Simulated assay, not measured.
Amino acid sequence: MASEPAASPRFFVLKKGEIGSRHDVDVGKSEPVNRGDAALCPRCGGAIGMLQWLPPYRVELVLHGEELGDFMETSGDDLLVSERFARAFREEGLTGLEGFHPVEVVRVRRKRRGPKPVHVPHYLAVTPCFSHAAVDMARSRIVYADDPPTCEECREATKNAIYGYTLEPGTWRGEDIFRPRGLYGRLTVSERFARFVERHGFTHMKLTPTEQLVWDPIGLGPPVTKQG
């Protein structure tokens, strides 16, 4: 009897929680802010990421919600994660994050009236890896500003809208959190990562299946499907 074909792995887009949520917070990097070079495509030489954040890792937080959560986005490719998140990530053998540098929280300021948070977690700066996983250009619904990508390695091109994307079969190498070729700006995570977040109840994280992602800032609508 023939065995059933293995189901395709599922992936999710990871973003910070909604504006106005209980854990809504802004992150500002505190002086001195030192920068390194941005990552470059090994084939075409184009930039595929933001300038690297170098020590010292110091931040000021502006709390819009009620308390600080486990996850924050910064102004670059780096993320801030709580110590409890970092510990569980390592203990359970998840992959895809680099760095884990301790961060000094210089100041926490409330945007609205109310008491300052009683507990300020210890945070670490982490950097998601640039993955070999590649966006499947034929099956993804992406509206490009001009021409589609010309470099087969980085697959970078300016985008005006995204109506879901999938990864090209055989390109993912098992990372649990990563930036895929062709969409380095979209933090992508595995189904194992999604279960990990749910199981531990980590806060200020929003997970959306990649095929359901909608990003259309100027209202172009989905790409027109070519008729055969």
Rank of each mutant, 00 (worst) to 15 (best):
M1R: 07
A2H: 12
S3D: 12
E4S: 13
A7V: 10
A7Y: 00
S8I: 00
R10V: 08
V13Q: 14
K15A: 12
S21I: 05
H23V: 01
D26C: 01
E31L: 15
P32I: 10
N34F: 01
G36R: 08
G36A: 10
A38D: 06
C41R: 05
P42M: 03
G45F: 09
A47P: 14
Q52K: 14
P55Y: 00
P55L: 04
R58S: 10
E60T: 14
G65F: 10
G65W: 13
E67A: 12
D70K: 05
D70E: 07
G76K: 00
L80D: 10
R84W: 02
R87K: 15
F89Q: 12
R90D: 09
E91A: 13
L97C: 07
E98C: 04
H101L: 03
V106K: 07
K111Q: 13
K111S: 13
K116D: 15
H122D: 14
Y123W: 08
Y123L: 11
A125W: 01
V126K: 08
P128N: 06
P128A: 05
F130I: 10
S140G: 10
R141E: 13
I142W: 02
I142V: 15
I142L: 09
D147C: 01
D147F: 00
P149K: 00
T150L: 11
T150R: 13
T150I: 06
E153I: 01
A161R: 09
I162Y: 10
Y163W: 15
T166V: 15
T166L: 10
P169A: 02
R173H: 14
R173N: 11
G174Y: 14
E175G: 01
E175V: 01
D176F: 02
I177Q: 06
F178H: 03
P180C: 04
P180V: 02
P180H: 06
G182D: 12
G185C: 02
R186H: 12
V197Y: 02
H200W: 07
H204I: 00
M205K: 03
L207C: 02
T210A: 11
L213I: 04
W215N: 08
I218Q: 13
T225E: 15
